[in-house]
Design a protein around this nucleic acid. Structure first.
Length: 480
DNA sequence: TCAAAGTCAATACG
DNA sequence: CGTATTGACTTTGA
């Protein structure tokens, strides 16, 4: 495989040109991207360890000599598995091989694909229906109430009691999703000290609840999710309200379980309960960041956590936006009796469930999705207003998709240097025919999505290699 | 103005 | 269809 490298680089070279004619670059500029072949000689074998006279060389040095000839035109899907870096960079979880020397990239292609195949089931904690040892009753429509739900849930609410009416007088709850509202205090209308979080004050953590999370393969990330007793720090002087520390991994897992249990689509839950998009939820669920590393993002987890603590009927109710509008007023005036809720929301809800949550405001489809967020009165997100007219009518901006070459180049560089200097980024952008901002975004996204997860990421220095503990080969890979 | 954190939302996938 | 991925806004804080 290595043998092919030579030509590979050539090929790439030409590609580059075709892509952006004037792109000619001075090799050394790019070579700067690679701090130092401090790596195990192997990977560096690629490097022509002499200032390559031509860009093409530096490119090969980048490591992507690779590029299976045939694969060129293929969609990046095909390529993805090619990148060793992928394992950690992407959320794919096949067990990764520790740092493949670049030169092996190509060779590993097939292997990786296989891995991937295996890895496929990493995701999907509960295989099909796999009934988890769950605490409670199946989505059986009626049963709900009696259910112990979660032990915590039951008493859970009372404490904060205010389910929906913890709102200070000032904040009226007009036609809005109570949950979203209350939750939003934290960041949107949040009265300074009013930490809306106190409500989440439970130990939903330790909860042995789902300890037995279905033996889903611990994929790289969740695997070492250990609570490194993050910041007990109560927000510094901030003031009150620092809620508890939430075991985000656990909450995420439980949410996944509950959504499955009731066949609640992520989109519905995300939009109605969290006031977030489906994609965001998905990402949070799969890659929850440790509480200690969260900032405003804690709010979202608090909402999830709170939802988990609510009695079943209330949870369901919160999934029905429309209903909540009506509910709202009731909440304000008097406490709703369970019967009220059941009659007005739970049962109808049950029907909705059976119908498949069809009424999901806006739905997930993009067509409706677009419209969805706009009319979604309950979860008005910050940008709602500031979204200019442009966003208004469906310009439907398209998302850039890196070409194979661009992606590989960027990844290769990233592997060597997580934080290239600006001038280098400029060079890269020119070479790849990308906007500087794009390159910049790439590195920023890469930095946080790469190892980010639970393992500590290598510090700034390119050689961080803070392989720090956990077998997070991901880390060592990227840094080393 | 820059970076990081939080998301959005298009779209790739299955 | 529902979920996963991901480039690029948006929001925060220096």
């Amino acid at each position: 495989m290595d043998g092919s490298l030579g030509e590979m680089s050539v090929q790439i070279h030409s590609e580059l040109h075709s892509q952006d004619g004037r792109a000619m670059l001075h090799s050394r500029d790019l070579s700067a991207a690679f701090p130092r072949p401090s790596l195990g000689g192997h990977s560096m074998s690629l490097e022509p360890e002499h200032r390559p006279p031509g860009f093409d060389h530096s490119m090969s040095a980048l490591g992507y000599g690779g590029d299976a000839p045939s694969s060129c035109g293929s969609t990046y899907t095909t390529l993805t598995p090619l990148q060793p870096f992928d394992d950690k960079f992407h959320h794919h979880h096949h067990h990764h091989h520790p740092c493949l020397p670049v030169s092996n990239v190509i060779g590993s292609f097939t292997l990786m694909r296989e891995d991937r195949g295996l890895g496929g089931n990493f995701y999907n904690p509960y295989g099909k229906d796999l009934g988890m040892t769950q605490s409670l009753s199946p989505p059986s429509t009626g049963s709900g109430l009696g259910t112990p739900m979660h032990g915590y849930g039951t008493l859970g609410n009372s404490p904060n009691g205010n389910g929906g009416q913890m709102l200070p007088s000032g904040y009226e709850v007009h036609g809005g999703n109570i949950f979203c509202r209350t939750a939003d205090f934290g960041r949107e209308m949040s009265p300074p000290g009013l930490g809306g979080d106190s409500s989440v004050s439970h130990q939903l953590n330790k909860m042995e609840a789902h300890q037995h999370a279905p033996s889903h393969h611990p994929h790289i990330y969740s695997q070492h999710y250990q609570h490194h007793h993050p910041s007990q720090h109560s927000q510094g002087g901030g003031g009150g309200g620092a809620g508890e520390e939430i075991d985000t991994r656990d909450v995420a897992q439980r949410i996944i379980t509950e959504l499955k249990r009731y066949s609640i689509p992520q989109a519905i839950f995300a939009e109605r309960v969290l006031c977030r998009s489906q994609g965001t939820l998905s990402d949070l669920l799969r890659n929850p960041k440790p509480w200690g590393k969260l900032k405003s993002g804690r709010e979202t987890f608090k909402r999830m956590s709170r939802w988990l603590q609510e009695p079943e009927f209330q949870r369901m109710a919160s999934l029905r936006l429309e209903a909540l509008h009506g509910l709202t007023s009731l909440y304000g005036s008097r406490s709703l009796s369970c019967t009220d809720l059941i009659n007005n929301f739970y049962q109808p809800l049950a029907q909705e469930i059976s119908r498949g949550w069809a009424g999901a405001g806006g739905g997930t489809g993009r067509g409706s999705a677009r419209r969805g967020w706009r009319k979604k009165g309950a979860c008005k997100r910050k940008e709602e207003e500031q979204s200019k007219l442009e966003r208004n009518q469906g310009p439907k901006r398209t998302r850039l998709v890196f070409t194979d070459l661009q992606r590989r180049t960027l990844l290769a560089i990233f592997r060597e240097n997580h934080r290239p200097a600006k001038d280098l980024q400029v060079t890269i952008s020119q070479q790849l025919g990308l906007e500087l901002s794009t390159v910049s975004n790439f590195f920023m996204n890469a930095r946080r999505r790469n190892v980010n997860k639970w393992a500590e990421e290598g510090r700034p220095s390119s050689t961080g290699s803070s392989g720090s503990s956990v077998s997070s080969s991901a880390v060592s890979c990227s840094t080393a």
